[in-house]
Simulated assay, not measured.
Amino acid sequence: MQRRNFIQATLASMPVIATTGKLSTFRNQKGFKVNAGKDRFDQPIKYRGVNPNDVKISSKDTDRQLTVLEYVGFEKIGPPLHVHFDQDEIFYVVEGEYLFQLDTERMTLKAGDTIFLPRAVPHTWLQLSDKGKLVYFLQPSGQMEEFFKKMNELQGPPTPELIQQIHQAHGMKVVGPPITL
């Protein structure tokens, strides 16, 4: 009986012990500024080799709790319909016009509009204007920075199988094609 009480008391105290530790060493404690048109680490990522997709706040700054990116689009393109298994996304349209799809619903967003895309719900977007700019947030971070870097390393257009493989390796799944008009 004493052993049982000891085990129960130990298990009951584990959450208290786990939450009393110091902040992770991966959390930035100093704060910082990222200049307009710049990437947090001066390592800009080009979406499809053309469109800047700059990290403003890195998962490395927030113990993987938040990532903030700024996308500048010079093409009327967007990603395939996909789901994030563990991340919510929030998009804020700074410039231009975009068509977003959340599950089966489509919504047009213009400068100043915001959309919340919950995890595990299929979504995509298409830039409608000649130029556009988005600021978007991923919470928790997941592996988006690594995903974009991996996609940026590809030489030539990837096969659908390779696209799916890279998505799945980074906590996502492609579930349909991009939006077309």
Rank of each mutant, 00 (worst) to 15 (best):
G112L: 09
Q127M: 08
Y47R: 06
P44S: 05
L81H: 14
S129Y: 00
K110Y: 05
S13N: 15
D103L: 08
Q43M: 14
A120M: 13
M1Q: 12
K38W: 02
P140N: 09
I7D: 07
S141H: 03
K149M: 11
F100H: 02
H84Q: 04
L102R: 05
L181G: 10
S24K: 10
V50M: 09
I179S: 02
Q155I: 05
T159P: 01
N35V: 15
R27C: 14
P140S: 10
N53Y: 11
K150W: 10
F100G: 02
V121A: 05
V50E: 10
L102W: 04
A120C: 12
G112I: 05
D42C: 08
L128P: 06
G31L: 08
F148H: 05
D86E: 12
W125K: 07
S13L: 13
F85P: 02
L117V: 03
G132I: 03
F148C: 03
V34W: 04
L181F: 13
E145W: 04
D113W: 00
V93M: 00
G171E: 02
M107V: 15
H170Q: 03
E97R: 12
I45V: 14
H123W: 10
G176F: 00
V174F: 06
T67R: 04
I179A: 01
S59C: 07
L117K: 00
T25W: 13
T10W: 11
P80V: 11
G176R: 00
V94C: 09
Y98C: 06
F148Q: 06
L11M: 07
G49C: 05
Q164N: 09
D88W: 04
F147T: 04
P122R: 06
I115C: 04
S24H: 09
Q139W: 11
I115R: 03
D63K: 05
L181S: 09
P79E: 01
K150M: 13
H123V: 04
N5V: 15
M107Y: 12
H123I: 05
I77A: 11
V121C: 03
D61C: 01
P178V: 06
E161V: 01
R106N: 09
Q165L: 09
